[in-house]
Design a protein around this nucleic acid. Sequence first.
DNA 1: TTGAAAGCGGTACCAG
DNA 2: CTGGTACCGCTTTCAA
Lengths: 339, 339
Amino acid sequence: MSESSKSPKPLPLPVPTSADVARRAGVSRATVSYVLNNAEAVRISEPTRRRVREAAEELGYVPHAAARSLRAGHTRIVLLPTPHVPIGPLYSTFLNELQWALRRLDYTVVQYGSLGLSGDEAARAWAELRPVAVISLGGTTLSSHDVATLKRAGARAVITMGPVGVPGAHALVMDQQEVGARAAAHLVGRGRRRIGVVVPREEGMELFSAPRLAGARRVEGAEVEALPMAYSEESAAELAARWRGLRLDAVFAYNDEYAMLLMRALQDEGLRVPEEVAVIGADDLLIGRLLRPRLSTVRIEMPTGDHLASLVDRAVREPSEVTERHDLMTAEAVRREST
Amino acid sequence: MSESSKSPKPLPLPVPTSADVARRAGVSRATVSYVLNNAEAVRISEPTRRRVREAAEELGYVPHAAARSLRAGHTRIVLLPTPHVPIGPLYSTFLNELQWALRRLDYTVVQYGSLGLSGDEAARAWAELRPVAVISLGGTTLSSHDVATLKRAGARAVITMGPVGVPGAHALVMDQQEVGARAAAHLVGRGRRRIGVVVPREEGMELFSAPRLAGARRVEGAEVEALPMAYSEESAAELAARWRGLRLDAVFAYNDEYAMLLMRALQDEGLRVPEEVAVIGADDLLIGRLLRPRLSTVRIEMPTGDHLASLVDRAVREPSEVTERHDLMTAEAVRREST
DNA sequence: TTGAAAGCGGTACCAG
DNA sequence: CTGGTACCGCTTTCAA
């Protein structure tokens, strides 16, 4: 039997390469490359160009990214580690903006999950892709060792958005403390003193919740008490049931979702909002305006995707060794009816 | 000054390769490869193994994924096109499950956005990565041409989760029609006849909203009217203001978020829910239980991540040419107080 | 204007 | 048990 006979396996059909295109067009692989990349440095005759293009089209040729970047010595991959926790609409929208902006700068945005991996393993897995930049937003913290691994693998920019700066990384600080501080200050301004701060029981949120709590604590005139609570009706009801014993006159509930849950439970318990207890959330979700009373909140101004994208781009082109701190986030209390 | 003096450019430091490791350990590249991959076919002495491991550690060596897969002739990448619209918690959780399950099967999960790209461009961009499988969940539809492009680039499984089957793909049908049908049937069962169906004005949701509308239409005894509405208080208020003229006695509002928005607007307009108008949403969000009356909804049972992961795995190992239809989703109406 | 060939970083065959 | 080496697909000098 000759090589061209049917193989037993169904269709491990060969993926067309630039050599196939070259053969079909009757030119060399070099010419194929020139044509398909619109090389300026070299002039190729129009008829040849057409033949190459047609051949590529007919074969359904798509270049092999791995081979290309191997040869080039670098990629244009910007890696976004996927957060482990479900993300809210605020963050989700921001992420879309960011992707869009990066694409316009000709980067390839890749989200890479690391669910069952330890910090070190995750960093190695990311490094294998040789991303030119890594943007770690929320959920995942990068250790300075992780940052080193990534840089060694060629990452020109490592940006972290956690509450704390990481040595060696371009820290893009989202100061979550500010959120807690604004909430507490607002409550104090409304005459409240004994303030409960809801801390989610769910895993992976400490990164945000701890600074928010700390921020509330540092506000003058506020007596703060931490209140662990899970994102469920049962947990909220349980907390509400022992509310009167806590002797609090206000609560900052981590974010609007927890706030709504708790507020409802408090009302079901017969407590009047805001007379007996003021409630404030964070993130300014639309749904917060649907409850009665309308939920007061801390609105967070995210940096625009464009802004962050251009920051990345600059860092890639001119990787300065200094750790930079950028405060791109602002927070502001919005009073509605629950405080 | 020696070579170790400061170079003008900061640090375009070379990324360590397996050759560097080999040199440092005093062995060949082959040996490095054997050791680091725990090759069974070849026995390497323990001292050598140690020397190699140490050298790799000291250099912070991380293998180059592109080179590896180039040589291997295939990748273990499962590509998940990122949806263009913000995703809900339901989908978000499912996605995490799926990633986790795929990782356990030793696949590399990569989410790849395609925001500013046309369908064709997107398919090509994905194909460049040579993924072994593509799972398109919601938001993005694959044309049969896209599927062909991907298969030609070596994808052994292309799974789409849209409302319609795509030729050449393993269609994993999430029949959104069923959602609309369940909602309408529930309302008819509660004695309603003239049913409004809210259709989001936002881009990119037609893929889901159109089948949900169609599903409602096919229910016996229901007179259905489509109601375009944006996800904003203004749009909801505008719709509510002209409600009485519409002469509807019930509304299915696409999902719980739109339902809550509309229900609040209707109440503000002085309409009683459910006496004058029954309201039902979909997706069974927790927040739907916080409003009064509590929101009735259609609960959607997603397939488990494990299930889908093993489906992918089977398809990869044994790529059957037949287009399969799997109905992994079920929907069921949950009555609370708004209907 | 086009072609031949080197080489990017790994892997795996075959010798030694 | 270990080393030499061919090769994966693509880009890019250098020559013709």
